[in-house]
């Protein structure tokens, strides 16, 4: 029997997984985490405004949502912000990761800490700080679409690129520097090494981090709340104003659409990361 099989068949004494209290707590936790979301999705198809009892299946709230011009506009805004956020976060995050991986410089640990500040400090503080900043520096408010979204996009990039940097840094840490030396030894130049050795190694991390940046942007509410104006609402802001107004099946429908997009993106990201974990196990 090898080590692998041994790990697979841990003895039962410390296998909390097999104990009833764990199963009860796990089931309760899963119900707690998922029941509200599932109920929300199911009742977006409910043919009743009162939302509590089931009155039959309908798509009419989705039709309403699709014909709601404000919602569609917010949706387009959200997607464009998420797109630009992804591109810029990917560039800045990759540069940060390369910087931290490749170079030795004074106060590097302080720099590493500062990079994480946008993730750590409360969103409300970043939101109001940027609100004040954009007001003071006279950032124009009447730019044409999509430039009018630049304030929100800049804010999103600020908290997205550190996540990208962390993911890519972790991937770079697993890069075996011997590979680079082997390539040099075999006569490759730096450009070829980047293209043929480093880039393929980074590819899964780049995909995962761009998916993360996209969803982070799509999901953000608090910071966007302080940046958005009447012309620049995003889907979460729009849903927020609908929620404040009342709990209606349209909100369920709009939420379900947003939910579906993020779940698909998340599933792809988690799936890629699993393959990545397997590769690590093998090496």
């Amino acid at each position: 029997m090898n080590q692998q099989q041994r790990k697979n068949c841990q003895n039962r004494i410390f296998n909390y997984f097999h104990q009833w209290w764990f199963r009860v707590i796990l089931c309760c936790t899963i119900v707690f985490l998922y029941a509200p979301i599932i109920v929300l999705v199911i009742f977006s198809f409910n043919d009743s405004r009162r939302n509590v009892t089931w009155h039959g299946f309908t798509f009419k709230y989705y039709e309403k949502a699709i014909h709601n011009n404000n919602l569609i506009e917010a949706f387009l805004n959200s997607l464009s912000i998420a797109f630009f956020n992804t591109v810029f976060s990917l560039i800045l995050g990759t540069l940060t990761a390369l910087l931290l991986w490749r170079f030795r410089f004074s106060y590097k640990s302080v720099y590493e800490g500062i990079i994480l500040v946008p993730i750590i400090i409360p969103e409300i503080c970043i939101g109001i700080a940027l609100l004040v900043f954009f007001n003071l520096c006279g950032w124009p408010n009447d730019l044409p679409w999509p430039l009018n979204l630049s304030k929100i996009t800049c804010a999103h990039i600020l908290f997205s690129f550190p996540f990208v940097a962390v993911i890519i840094r972790a991937r770079l840490a697993k890069f075996n520097l011997d590979q680079e030396e082997a390539a040099l030894d075999l006569g490759a130049n730096h450009k070829q090494i980047f293209k043929n050795v480093l880039f393929p190694h980074l590819k899964p991390a780049l995909i995962v981090s761009s998916l993360l940046a996209f969803t982070l942007s799509l999901d953000d509410f608090v910071i966007t709340f302080f940046m958005s104006g009447p012309e620049t609402t995003t889907v979460p802001i729009k849903i927020y104003s609908m929620v404040r107004f009342s709990v209606t099946p349209e909100v369920n429908a709009a939420s379900t659409i947003l939910l579906l997009i993020t779940i698909v993106l998340a599933a792809i990201a988690i799936w890629i990361q699993r393959g990545w974990a397997k590769e690590v196990e093998k090496s």
């Binding site: 985490l33 509200p36 979301i37 799509l218 999901d219 927020y240 929620v243 709990v247 939420s255 993106l265």
Partner: peptide, 15 residues
């Protein structure tokens, strides 16, 4: 659930 929008999750709780 970490990937699901904060607002949607809060709204689901309200519902």
């Amino acid at each position: 659930p970490f990937w699901v929008n904060l607002l949607i999750r809060t709204y689901a709780l309200i519902a």
